[in-house]
Design a protein around this nucleic acid. Sequence first.
DNA 1: CTGAAAGCGCTTACAG
DNA 2: CTGAAAGCGCTTACAG
Lengths: 334, 334
Amino acid sequence: MESTVTLAQVARAAGVSASTVSRILNGTAKVSAEKREAVERTLAQLNYQPNVLARSLASGKTMSIGVLTQDISSPFYGDVLRGIERGLTNSGYHPVVISGHWRAQEEVEAIDFLVSRKVDAMIVLGGVAPDEQLQQVASYMPLVALGRSVPGLTQQCLRLDNFAGGYLATKHLIDLGHRTIAHIAGMPTHRDAQDRLAGYRAALEEARLTFDPELVLEGDFLEQSGFLAATRLIDSRKMFTGVFVANDQMAYGARLALYRRGLRVPEDISLVAFDDLPSSTFTTPPLTTVRQPTFDMGLAAATCLLRMLRGAPSWLPPMGPELVVRESTTRRRG
Amino acid sequence: MESTVTLAQVARAAGVSASTVSRILNGTAKVSAEKREAVERTLAQLNYQPNVLARSLASGKTMSIGVLTQDISSPFYGDVLRGIERGLTNSGYHPVVISGHWRAQEEVEAIDFLVSRKVDAMIVLGGVAPDEQLQQVASYMPLVALGRSVPGLTQQCLRLDNFAGGYLATKHLIDLGHRTIAHIAGMPTHRDAQDRLAGYRAALEEARLTFDPELVLEGDFLEQSGFLAATRLIDSRKMFTGVFVANDQMAYGARLALYRRGLRVPEDISLVAFDDLPSSTFTTPPLTTVRQPTFDMGLAAATCLLRMLRGAPSWLPPMGPELVVRESTTRRRG
DNA sequence: CTGAAAGCGCTTACAG
DNA sequence: CTGAAAGCGCTTACAG
């Protein structure tokens, strides 16, 4: 049955005041050993469970961290969340997560929701919530943003260099001798997508390979769109031997499209992607991709927030994109 | 800046009592049009944001639904969570999710945490928390369990028939002419794993195929374990032409192991699994698997809870496992 | 229809 | 060291 034992009841039973019980519970002040013992016994006996709501209302702290994610079932954010969860373990703080689905209005409301829930701090994962809102929230509570860089909050933002990542991926293909390299990009509204595309172009340029707009198709970062884009690409009869796909999920789709058309990976087409999702180790063949340290990013965000909550300055470790060469890319044949 | 406007301030500014403002906010009672107007104007003007904590403490309702999941980054539970999120949309209720990691102690604490947060209802996804605890929680708040069946709470539990699912998967292989069928099972401590294995055995028996313990290896429902199990199986030099893998994630690993050993799917080995994760449509080849309607299960759980919260009796739609035939299985050659 | 008052269950100056 | 009291910001009988 729900514990409905209150502090006052414990106090009465133990023959002390509520203040004393509260102090013992919170370790707030010295209390004589005898009282402490009596109270602790009563606490256990009555199986007292503090009412978190009342405590929060009175203290002004909820011991919860708001987390704005975009899609609760996304493998990418899922791994970040796991890192956050880990980073918060044993800190006394708990995450409260809500999804924004990359829709500005939804994100604004989600953030308002977290604020109204009086979270003590906030972590924002990607998304398109207005910078102003984040700046404002950051003005009265610790905030860390992952996957975006908010002007004026650079110390609290962790965003991989997506340009460098796109460059790395493309350069890898070029180094393997590929000369006609297609790109399946993300939505142009997506900063990450733009940057990866720019990195792709920079690598081509550096190698004096001409940029062919017809070799660049657009997806939406989900598997299906990668499948469609690759299918269109193949059916266009344009020649290409390598593809840089803007994220792993689309690469999964693209890989299936190639399979459907009887093109082998990597023998016929080399495939390199971006993210390094946990499952990319197990695709057939294992995917060459630019790694984002998702778990570590989540962990770092949590750790940073905890520091800030203690009053220390924010500090986020530098993290860069890293190419993980597996088996979906190989030297160009013939 | 954080809205620190209180109800009392709004009341004063509008020239009414706090009670009246509260009533207007909650639509609790009739209020004269003029007062309502004045109050509403003030509300907007001051950009009043109710303090959820105070409201909850006073009303005894938090408008939050506790969700105990097992792994925040699991693709399986992720999809269930998405369904829950969807089902709760526009209901005024919000999910608060916490992970138990299939560890009894952790789950017990997680449930206690949710209770102490005064959630209005609870959804439990799988796990090994003691039946007694769930029964107790269910005695004072609406509770729905997915993936487990708690004695005495059958109306509030939704659990697919895993035996039937295991049978279906194996039967499919048998119908395709396979006679030596291996099984990569889940942990024996896992009820689902046991049932799927039992279904496998039942199908073999029905077809008068002898059960060979050496053809059954054990994994832990993660990719890596599927890879290891399949590798061991192949290297054991036992003959087999079909494999029933107890879940999709292990099947991904197994599929890679076969690839590594130069065995083709489905030409050399047919592979059937269990779950139908979103990504199983995009594996190479697309995976034949027993579908669990994860999203719909989450949706149904949320809907059921909402009904119960309204005082209506619990009701969960019947859901059965369903074989989704894709391209990882084929008729036995030779 | 509307207000004053009590109460939700804690925490935290304030005295002593 | 410890208690009485005020206060956190709402909601909700209780009167009128």
